[in-house]
Design a protein around this nucleic acid. Sequence first.
DNA 1: ATAGTTAATCGCAATATTGCGATTGATTTT
DNA 2: AAAATCAATCGCAATATTGCGATTAACTAT
Lengths: 103, 103
Amino acid sequence: MGLSKTEAFSTEQNRIAELAKALAHPARVAIVQHLLKTKACICGDLVDVLPLSQSTVSQHLKAMKTAGIITGSVKPPKVCYCLNMEVLREFTAAFGEMFSRCC
Amino acid sequence: MGLSKTEAFSTEQNRIAELAKALAHPARVAIVQHLLKTKACICGDLVDVLPLSQSTVSQHLKAMKTAGIITGSVKPPKVCYCLNMEVLREFTAAFGEMFSRCC
DNA sequence: ATAGTTAATCGCAATATTGCGATTGATTTT
DNA sequence: AAAATCAATCGCAATATTGCGATTAACTAT
């Protein structure tokens, strides 16, 4: 049906999947990489760097913001985007814990 | 257009996104967790554990196999699934490297 | 040979994602 | 007040994903 049966899985499983999804697109990886370099930047900078239109970049940013990976603070008419370190730690902790024993 | 512009991004960015995508669904997280516990199991076991039909589980397994996260060795009529430690290391290395400096 | 077991695949439907151009809203600059 | 800047959102189209039942393929066991 195209509908992820989220209710059938645990909160933890859904959260981990959500975090993974937030990085499951090359553009989003590129956004993270750019934010790692620049520490912070506005949407327009990302549009310059990425091979995508402004509206598409804006959508990716929205998705990443919803997952919590990044934050956006408004300084009109600009919006300053940053990585959310807390959530990145959550990400590495979740997967680190998961795979620590086996590799 | 619904088409990821993969060719516009680097091989590395696409690979990282591919790995993330392989875990970007609660069912796939559950599959990994189960394989961590059992070390190895057949498809039918996963069908018993997951709230999804056999065909759907089979599809998820195929996707994860394509990304390299798991391997499936045929012992007819069963197929034994395992985590691919090499690729899990690739996963943790990629993200660990990425986020090591910041958090 | 026949029946049983297991998992992949096919065919279908519903929903989600990806992408863009155009528009809109908010705020600064002139 | 008017124009410029920046980013979010709308509306649309194309493609991908998710899910299931039914079928098929590949063996084993009888």
